[in-house]
């Protein structure tokens, strides 16, 4: 049974990278469509809309970070690969906040970014304010990232 520990741990790491990346890919794509629409009419707004497009791209990076830390802890990237069933399950659960929250926050952030791009299209001087609405969503992605990292490193120090 203990041999399944590594499977769960790896599944958690992959989920974090997968859903974070998937969410960001969709989100940046949606933002890109809106940005392209604005640029077609007014190319001078490129810099501003590019930043707004890229805001939901961070979730993919966070997912990668969580996956990387998990892989280091479970010995896939070197070191001891001795992961018990319970520990593997705990690693899996530790990765879940990142996997789930990163995906949904990326999509929601994209919607906020698209709305902000619409603001910039009409009032470029409000770029700073518009960006804040989208940036607010980032808070919850960071909280999920934080809790996942704390849990993963915590599980590593438990002897079970």
């Amino acid at each position: 049974m203990d041999s399944y520990g590594i499977v769960f741990a790896l599944a958690g790491a992959i989920s974090a990278a997968l859903f974070g990346g998937l969410g960001s890919a969709r989100a940046v794509g949606m933002g890109g469509e809106a940005a392209a629409g604005v640029i077609t009419e007014d190319p001078s707004k490129f810099g501003k809309v590019l930043i707004l497009q890229l805001l939901p791209g961070t979730q993919g990076i966070y997912g990668l970070l969580v996956a990387f830390i998990t892989l280091s802890q479970i010995g896939v990237l070197g070191g001891s690969g001795d992961v018990s069933f319970v520990k593997g399950l705990l690693y899996f659960l530790s990765c879940m906040p990142a996997a789930v929250v990163l995906y949904f926050s990326a999509i929601r952030q994209a919607r906020a970014s698209i709305a902000s791009i619409a603001v910039v299209a009409k009032k470029p001087e409000s770029f700073g304010k518009a960006m804040m609405f989208s940036a607010m969503v980032e808070t919850y992605a960071i909280l999920a990232l934080l809790i996942s990292i704390l849990a993963i490193t915590g599980v590593g120090s438990i002897n079970i």
Partner: peptide
């Protein structure tokens, strides 16, 4: 219609 709406937003000006 994300692209289309973004273009229309600019045209509304």
């Amino acid at each position: 219609h994300i692209y289309a709406v973004a273009r229309i937003r600019s045209r509304e000006l």
